[in-house]
């Protein structure tokens, strides 16, 4: 009896979590996949949904708007993740030092992450406001011409990038700080004794030792960057034109503005495939969960 209980206990313990993930993640995903084979609008009875098979996928793969959004998303993700990793790691290395008042600095730096994304969008919309925003006030103070930030495609993209870096660099800082605290201090001391300068200790010992943490952090940020929606929704709503229309926002507009839920689901499935492939590729390059001996 005890043996049976022992064998079953892991399932009992993991059961609730599996159930929640199943209901909250897997079920909607499967429903989205199902929906992508139909033509259906919100409010219509499901019985009136029209079977389309794979035609929505064919359409999505050739749709210039989808391709454009995908390019915007890839460029956005590449820029923000690279910038956040570099800035976040550099700040974490600075904040690692035990100097007076550092804990206050750490708290301040981490605050942006605690703000709801939609509020971040509102904050930056105010910052980049043509008439009242601090961005233009700064330019004017420096004797430079004021800009129509959110009306110019390049500047609007820049605004979106800046807001994302502002909000998510703290996440990288937290992860890298945690990683730094777990490093074998004696290996760092050994490097000092071996004659490494502080710069060489960082570049040749600290960062390589941090690599598993950096890979996981970059991967988490990459997945998040491909799913970015709320900040851009509030800041530019994809505009001007479609300059900042990332794929999730395009999906949103297709579903709830264009009332093409089946088509929007098909694009979602494609996005899911892209993110999944990216994750697998990153983990194949360097999987911190895998024992290097194997």
């Amino acid at each position: 009896m005890k043996q049976i209980l022992d064998r079953l206990s892991p399932y009992f313990l993991a059961g609730p979590a599996v159930l929640v993930i199943g209901v909250a993640c897997l079920y909607p995903t499967l429903m989205a996949v199902r929906l992508s084979f139909y033509k259906w609008s919100l409010g219509d009875p499901w019985s009136s949904a029209q079977w389309l098979g794979l035609s929505a996928f064919r359409q999505a793969l050739t749709d210039p708007a989808v391709l454009h959004s995908l390019i915007v998303t890839v460029v956005f993700a590449a820029i923000v993740v690279s910038a956040e990793m570099v800035i976040g790691t550099a700040l974490a290395l600075l904040m690692e030092r035990q100097v007076a008042g550092i804990s206050l600095f750490r708290t301040i730096f981490i605050m942006p992450m605690m703000v709801a994304p939609i509020v971040v969008g509102m904050i930056w919309r105010y910052v980049f406001d043509t008439q009242f925003g601090p961005a233009n006030a700064l330019l004017t103070a420096l004797g430079l011409p004021a800009q129509s930030w959110l009306a110019n495609p390049s500047l609007a993209f820049l605004a979106v990038v800046v807001s994302d870096i502002w909000q998510w660099t703290p996440f990288v800082i937290i992860m890298v700080l945690a990683g730094l605290q777990n490093l074998d201090q004696s290996a760092l001391e050994a490097a000092q004794i071996d004659g490494a300068t502080p710069r060489q200790v960082i570049l040749r010992v600290k960062l390589p030792m941090l690599m598993p943490v950096l890979v996981i952090t970059a991967l988490m940020r990459l997945i998040d960057a491909f799913r970015v929606l709320e900040v851009i929704f509030a800041l530019t709503f994809g505009g001007p034109g479609s300059a900042t229309e990332v794929l999730p926002l395009h999906i949103y507009k297709t579903a709830f503005v264009g009332q093409q839920l089946g088509y929007a689901s098909a694009i979602s499935v494609l996005l899911l495939v892209v993110v999944f492939a990216l994750s697998l590729a990153t983990l194949a390059l360097s999987n911190p969960l895998k024992d290097p001996r194997q």
């Binding site: 074998d184 004696s186 050994a190 490097a191 000092q192 071996d194 004659g195 040749r204 390589p208 030792m209």
Partner: peptide
Amino acid sequence: PPGRRDIAMVFQSYALYPHMTVKENMSFA
């Protein structure tokens, strides 16, 4: 600084660089 004292140290925890091979560990300095 430690690197300019012409000393070498063997630590209790070995303090090897985990990302380097044995050869790279030994040749680092």
